[in-house]
Simulated scan of single mutants.
Amino acid sequence: MGDVIAEDLRVLFCGINPGLMSEATGHHFARPGNRFWPVLHLSGFTPRRLAPAEQEELPAYGLGITNVVDRPSARADELSREEYREGGLILAEKVTRLRPRWLAVVGVTAYRAAFDDRRAVIGRQERTIGDTRIWVLPNPSGLNASWSLPRMTEEYERLRAAVDDEG
């Protein structure tokens, strides 16, 4: 499944890996229960709620999407530690090349595995990749029931405020 990327983005969002619906449609966060697209709008990143099929509009807003691991699966827990580590290396190379201001990894477990940082929590990270700052967001999957839509929106708003504050 292809990335939605460009150089010098405000935020490069990074999912864990494509789900089966995303792989079938070619659109990121395509499963109907996934909250990425609603939260992106509710948190102020986009002026309206985009549908997964409109993902190519994101670079016009300074946004992009990639994944830690390219291999599709029904659930993220089907991925191996090696896939996460390799994905983290590839992601770091991509970020170095594209130079987004922020990398937003959606899923703390994926971030911990990809960057070998077992103590990472949701929010801004100390680590950077070159000049790119990193923020870990809650996974918007409908399976992540521990995060309500309003609470998740608040965390995405925190990132948007940091992006806006730092230019």
Rank of each mutant, 00 (worst) to 15 (best):
residue 52 P to D: 03
residue 62 G to A: 07
residue 98 L to G: 07
residue 113 A to F: 02
residue 95 V to G: 05
residue 50 L to T: 00
residue 86 E to G: 09
residue 106 V to E: 15
residue 24 A to W: 08
residue 70 D to G: 12
residue 94 K to M: 14
residue 34 N to I: 04
residue 67 N to C: 05
residue 41 H to W: 15
residue 67 N to Q: 06
residue 93 E to T: 11
residue 28 H to M: 06
residue 30 A to E: 08
residue 100 P to F: 13
residue 94 K to H: 03
residue 44 G to T: 06
residue 111 Y to N: 01
residue 40 L to W: 06
residue 98 L to F: 05
residue 80 S to K: 04
residue 48 R to I: 06
residue 53 A to C: 11
residue 99 R to I: 08
residue 31 R to W: 13
residue 109 T to N: 15
residue 98 L to T: 10
residue 50 L to W: 11
residue 32 P to V: 14
residue 99 R to Y: 10
residue 65 I to H: 02
residue 24 A to H: 13
residue 60 A to C: 07
residue 95 V to E: 08
residue 34 N to S: 07
residue 54 E to N: 03
residue 75 R to H: 12
residue 84 Y to D: 01
residue 81 R to M: 11
residue 76 A to H: 05
residue 79 L to H: 08
residue 33 G to Q: 14
residue 30 A to I: 00
residue 89 L to F: 11
residue 45 F to Y: 13
residue 112 R to E: 00
residue 24 A to G: 06
residue 42 L to F: 15
residue 26 G to K: 11
residue 29 F to N: 00
residue 63 L to I: 10
residue 107 G to C: 07
residue 79 L to S: 00
residue 19 G to I: 01
residue 75 R to I: 11
residue 55 Q to E: 14
residue 58 L to W: 00
residue 53 A to E: 15
residue 71 R to Q: 06
residue 89 L to M: 13
residue 72 P to D: 08
residue 22 S to H: 02
residue 20 L to W: 09
residue 64 G to T: 05
residue 107 G to A: 03
residue 85 R to V: 12
residue 50 L to Y: 06
residue 76 A to S: 14
residue 20 L to C: 04
residue 55 Q to G: 15
residue 97 R to T: 11
residue 39 V to T: 14
residue 47 P to R: 10
residue 27 H to K: 03
residue 110 A to M: 00
residue 53 A to K: 14
residue 102 W to F: 14
residue 43 S to G: 12
residue 73 S to D: 06
residue 23 E to H: 13
residue 103 L to C: 09
residue 94 K to F: 04
residue 44 G to I: 11
residue 44 G to M: 06
residue 79 L to R: 01
residue 55 Q to C: 13
residue 27 H to G: 07
residue 112 R to F: 03
residue 39 V to R: 03
residue 82 E to F: 04
residue 102 W to C: 07
residue 74 A to C: 05
residue 84 Y to F: 15
residue 44 G to E: 09
residue 96 T to E: 14
residue 93 E to N: 13
residue 71 R to I: 02
residue 89 L to V: 10
residue 101 R to M: 12
residue 73 S to E: 11
residue 85 R to M: 11
residue 56 E to T: 12
residue 45 F to H: 10
residue 28 H to K: 03
residue 60 A to S: 12
residue 69 V to P: 00
residue 41 H to F: 15
residue 78 E to S: 10
residue 79 L to K: 01
residue 76 A to C: 02
residue 71 R to E: 02
residue 95 V to Y: 04
residue 33 G to P: 09
residue 85 R to E: 14
residue 107 G to P: 07
residue 52 P to T: 05
residue 81 R to F: 09
residue 106 V to D: 07
residue 61 Y to D: 08
residue 21 M to H: 13
residue 47 P to W: 09
residue 84 Y to S: 01
residue 107 G to W: 01
residue 48 R to A: 10
residue 40 L to F: 12
residue 61 Y to W: 09
residue 97 R to D: 08
residue 108 V to W: 04
residue 27 H to R: 04
residue 75 R to C: 09
residue 68 V to M: 07
residue 108 V to A: 08
residue 91 L to H: 01
residue 83 E to K: 00
residue 90 I to Y: 11
residue 110 A to V: 05
residue 87 G to S: 02
residue 113 A to H: 06
residue 70 D to W: 11
residue 105 V to Y: 03
residue 59 P to H: 08
residue 90 I to L: 15
residue 111 Y to E: 07
residue 74 A to L: 10
residue 42 L to D: 07
residue 65 I to V: 15
residue 51 A to K: 14
residue 31 R to P: 05
residue 111 Y to I: 03
residue 71 R to M: 02
residue 47 P to M: 10
residue 90 I to M: 13
